[in-house]
């Protein structure tokens, strides 16, 4: 089996590791720190982050959680699943297929749920008994 060379840098070349084993432990450290931050934020829920972002109708804290999750997903896929070392075409085929379908699904379901919530909030539908 032909060995492909591993790309040993993360953060766009900002952090460079000497060998693949060192990179794996580095990524573990990164993932652990991100998880620890998530848990700490989840437990203490700082008041400053509990306000809503205009137009998005989402708390700042929740946006931070989602962004941190995508960061973790990126490093798991890119470094543990070696997506960084695959061809550009394979990366695009897997990632964009997924992102387009999921964005569409999430948008349409959340939109519909908001509509149903509004309908349920109309006076003549009672759920408070």
């Amino acid at each position: 089996m032909a060995h492909q060379e591993h790309d040993l840098t993360i953060f766009r070349g900002l952090i460079k590791f000497k060998n693949i084993t060192q990179k794996i432990w580095g990524v573990l450290l990164l993932l652990s720190i991100v998880t620890a931050v998530e848990v700490a934020l989840g437990i203490y829920k700082p008041d400053a982050l509990m306000s809503y972002i205009p137009y998005l109708n989402m708390k700042i804290l929740n946006l931070i959680f989602i962004v941190l999750t995508i960061v973790k997903a990126y490093y798991i896929t890119w470094d543990f699943m070696h997506m960084r070392d695959e061809t550009k075409l394979l990366r695009r085929v897997v990632v964009w297929t997924f992102i387009f379908l999921v964005l569409y699904l999430v948008w349409i379901l959340i939109q519909e749920a908001g509509y149903i919530f509004d309908i349920d909030s109309i006076d003549y539908i009672k759920r408070d008994f």
Partner: peptide, 17 residues
């Protein structure tokens, strides 16, 4: 992954409802 996304999006649906 799309199957799981379906489940999690459905969870989002129920939650927003």
């Amino acid at each position: 992954g799309l199957t799981f996304s379906g489940f999690i999006a459905a969870y989002g649906f129920a939650r927003f409802k």
